[in-house]
Write a protein that binds this DNA or RNA. Structure first.
Lengths: 238, 238
DNA sequence: GCTAATTTCGGAACACGGTCGGAAATTCTT
DNA sequence: AAGAATTTCCGACCGTGTTCCGAAATTAGC
C-alpha cells in the first residue's frame, strides 16, 4: 500500500505549469528572437497560460533573467589553471568576464543585490579560485575579499559600458551632442591632451583591453596588500 | 527701424515652454520627492503642459536625466591637485567617483553610449587631469587613454553595484536565495575560502574600499605601462 | 456527499515610457 | 486680407512590467 512512501499529492489546485517550463520557453524565445524581444506577455502566450500566471513561479522579469543566467553560469567552462597565483587569478577572472559578456542580457541583472551570493556552485568555484589565489599569494582572507570585490567592480563596469555602447543608432546628429573636444577639434583649448587624442579616441576606446587592465589591477592589488601586511598569512589569529 | 539689429521672432507657433524650464521643474521634483518618483507625466503636469510636449524639448527620459547630470557635473569641485602624478590621478578619479556617486540617478545614465564625450568642460577637466597625470608619469598618450578607460570601468562598476545594492526589500526570504555558502555554512565544502569567510562577507562587502583599490589599480597600470615602454615619452613619433 | 481550506489561474486594470497624427498659433508671401 | 509655410502642442493610443482580486480546481474534514 503506498501510503507514507508515495509523496501525497499536494493540496490545492494543481499547477498547470512550472518554473522549469517557463525557463525553457524563455530560453527558446531568446534563442529565436533575441533577448530584447522577450516580454512577459509573449512568454506567457507561448506557454499557453495567462500573463499573470508567470508571476506565481517567478518573482519578476529581472528574477527570470537571473535564473537564466544562473543556469548558464553553470556552463562556464573551468579554465586550465596555471600554478602561479596571480596568473590563476587573472585566468579565473577572464573566464568570469568572458562567460558573462557572452550573454548581452547579463548586463540587466549583473548589478542586482546579492547577484554573486545567489549564483551556483560552478560560478562560485571561480570566485573561490580568485580568493584562493590571493591567499596563496600571501594575503589574509579579508584582503582577498576586498581584492575580489575590486576585480568584480572592474569586470562589471567593463561589461556594462561595453554592452550599452554597442547599440544606439547614430543616424541623426543631435545638437545636444556637440562636444568641443571629441569629434571636432576647434582651436587651442585648455584640455590639451584630450584635444590631442580626440580623433583617435573612438578607435582606442573600441579596443578590448580588459585582460591587460586586469593583469595590472591584480599586480597592483597584490603588491599593495603584501606591502601593508608583510609576511603574515593571516593578520587576525593567534 | 529695428530690422537687422533686433533678432526677428522665429516663424511658427511660439513655444510655451523651454528645455531649461523642464530641467528646472525636474530638479524641483527630484529634490522634493526623490528621483524614483520622477515620471514624464508627473513632470509635464507639474509644468502645466501635455505629456507629449516634453518630447519636443528632450529626446527621452534618459536624455533628461543625462542633461541633469550634465549640469550637476559642472558643479563637481576641482580638488587641490598634488604634484606627484599618480597622486594627481587618484585624486581626480576619486573626485569623479564621489561627484557621480552623490546622485543615485547617475547610475541610470552612467553607461549610456558617449556619456563621457557628451559631458561638459568642468567634468572633462578631471578627465584631462587623469590623462595628463599618466603622460607626466611617462606613458604615451594612447596608453593614457587605455588607463583612463580602465579606471572608468572600475569607477562605473563600483557606483552601479553599490547603487543597486542599497535598496531591495529584505522582508521575505525567497527560497530561491538559498546559497550554500553565504548565509549558512553547512559542513565541509569544496569552496573552503568562501566558506571560511562567508559569515564575514556581508560586513566586508559593505566597506568602502574604492579609493584603496583605485590606488592599487593606478600603481599597477602605471607600472605595467612603464615596463612595456621604458623611458620613451611617446612610442610613435620621430 | 457536502462544505471548508488551500492553492493556482487569469481577466481587468494601473502606471509607466514613448509615438502618431492632426489641431493650433504664429510668420511669410502674395 | 487670405492663404501657405512653419513650428509647437497635445489627446489618443500602443506596448511594457506588474498588481488586484475573484474564479477555478483540487484535497481535507466531516
Amino acid at each position: 500500500m503506498p501510503r507514507s512512501n508515495a509523496p501525497r499529492r499536494p493540496v490545492g489546485r494543481p499547477p498547470v505549469t512550472s518554473r522549469e517550463q517557463i525557463l525553457t520557453a524563455a530560453r527558446a524565445l531568446i534563442d529565436e528572437y533575441g533577448w530584447e524581444k522577450l516580454t512577459v506577455r509573449r512568454l506567457a502566450s507561448e506557454i499557453g497560460v495567462g500573463t499573470t500566471t508567470l508571476y506565481s513561479h517567478v518573482r519578476d522579469k529581472e528574477d527570470l533573467l537571473f535564473l537564466l543566467i544562473y543556469e548558464y553560469a553553470e556552463q562556464i567552462p573551468h579554465p586550465e589553471l596555471p600554478d602561479e597565483p596571480r596568473e590563476r587569478i587573472t585566468t579565473a577572472a577572464v573566464a568570469i568576464h568572458d562567460g558573462l559578456a557572452a550573454w548581452p542580457w547579463a548586463a540587466e541583472v549583473l548589478t542586482t543585490d546579492g547577484f554573486i551570493a545567489r549564483l551556483g556552485d560552478s560560478f562560485l568555484w571561480l570566485v573561490e579560485t580568485i580568493l584562493a589565489g590571493v591567499v596563496d599569494a600571501g594575503c589574509p582572507r579579508e584582503q582577498a575579499v576586498r581584492i575580489f570585490r575590486s576585480i568584480w567592480y572592474y569586470t562589471v563596469g567593463e561589461i556594462l559600458v561595453r554592452a550599452h555602447t554597442r547599440r544606439r543608432k547614430m543616424d541623426e546628429q543631435d545638437p545636444t551632442c556637440l562636444n568641443p573636444y571629441f569629434g571636432n577639434a576647434d582651436g587651442p583649448l585648455r584640455h590639451s591632451h584630450l584635444a590631442a587624442i580626440a580623433d583617435r579616441w573612438a578607435a582606442l576606446a573600441g579596443q578590448d583591453t580588459f585582460a591587460q587592465g586586469l593583469r595590472a589591477f591584480v599586480d597592483g592589488l597584490l603588491a599593495q596588500c603584501l606591502t601593508q601586511t608583510p609576511g603574515a598569512p593571516d593578520a587576525g589569529a593567534s
